[in-house]
């Protein structure tokens, strides 16, 4: 009995408080099934695109942005992601969050880590392949432009038109942190959480965005530039071949500048970028977004524009 009393006394010594925060609201973010990835789609120039695999890690959903949100408190600090093959994936839970206030959402899309949860259609082999880089997508040094990043998207499929078929298998070595999304009316995309709320938001994947002519929702979706990039006419379009295709940078960057909060120095509105850069650095981040979002912010790194000197400080 004396021992119990001593234990009680010792137990009462603890002064550190427990969790005294008020009850938060709950936000479930789902990864929506992508019909385009599962069933394919037809581009505006008549190419029927079909995907065998569309593998990317999606997640790291977070609440709030200090510069954007006046009053948002994220309780859960849960930053994990899942590896999906959207060519077979169905709608499923992405992340669960708890918080209070009016919060913007942010997320990441890119290569998996060793803690990424494997979803249906993916395997450890996929994880190893996508992590095959000197720098992991999570722990890497984003400022080292010359470093190899982990593979943020494995897309494999084919496109056909009038009996002509082109195959592609692209390992896009990019990772993107996406935030500060806007609604079509230009207002910030936010969720308002109050104690006891249970909200659901959907993250969707739109593979057609890889084939936009310009980073603009109104721009046509074209496969012809990719088909024409097949320089050796072997029926396989490679990233190296896309690297040889030069595009005028002006219209592309104007489309970016007119979309949300991107600010670009005036001197880069001329020159050229490659089709590969357009695909990997500008169009790839547009693939995933939340339902009801017009556009989001993301960082473009390592974009070299032919014929233009980079601004001082880059």
């Amino acid at each position: 009995m004396r021992w119990l009393g001593l234990v009680v006394v010792l137990g009462a010594m603890g002064c550190l408080p427990g969790d005294g925060r008020p009850e938060p609201g709950e936000l479930l973010v789902e990864a929506q099934r992508s019909d385009e990835a599962r069933d394919g789609f037809v581009t505006d120039d008549g190419w029927a695109v079909h995907f065998d695999r569309f593998v990317t890690a999606l997640g790291g959903v977070g609440l709030g942005d200090e510069a954007f949100d006046v009053a948002c408190i994220d309780y859960s600090l849960s930053f994990y992601d899942r590896l999906y093959d959207f060519a077979v994936a169905d709608t499923s839970k992405l992340n669960l969050h708890y918080g209070l206030g009016t919060c913007t959402l942010r997320y990441r899309m890119g290569s998996p880590s060793d803690r990424t949860i494997l979803m249906a259609g993916t395997s450890e082999t996929d994880r190893e392949l996508l992590r095959d880089a000197r720098i992991d997508g999570i722990f890497g040094d984003d400022e080292d432009e010359d470093a190899e990043e982990g593979v943020g998207l494995l897309v494999e499929g084919s496109a056909s038109k009038d009996g002509e078929q082109k195959r592609f298998r692209w390992l896009i070595r990019q990772n993107h942190a996406i935030s500060r999304c806007l609604r079509p009316d230009g207002s910030p995309f936010r969720v308002t959480l109050e104690g006891g709320d249970e909200l659901v938001r959907a993250a969707r994947v739109l593979p057609r965005e890889l084939f936009r002519k310009l980073p603009d929702d109104d721009a046509p979706v074209l496969f012809a530039p990719y088909a024409l990039a097949d320089a050796d006419a072997d029926g396989v379009v490679t990233l190296e071949e896309l690297q040889q295709v030069q595009l005028p940078a002006g219209p592309i960057l104007e489309a970016l500048a007119g979309d949300s909060n991107l600010m670009l120095p005036g001197q880069v509105l001329s020159g050229q970028i490659t089709l590969r850069e357009l695909l990997e650095k500008i169009l790839f981040p547009r693939v995933a977004s939340f339902e009801g979002v017009q556009g989001c912010e993301f960082i473009i790194s390592g974009l070299s524009i032919e014929g233009v000197e980079p601004p001082d400080g880059d």
């Binding site: 938060p24 309780y75 994990y80 992340n95 969050h97 708890y98 949860i117």
Partner: peptide
């Protein structure tokens, strides 16, 4: 408290 049970961490 208030945690995603699937969180690998």
């Amino acid at each position: 408290p208030f945690a995603d049970p699937d969180n690998p961490t």
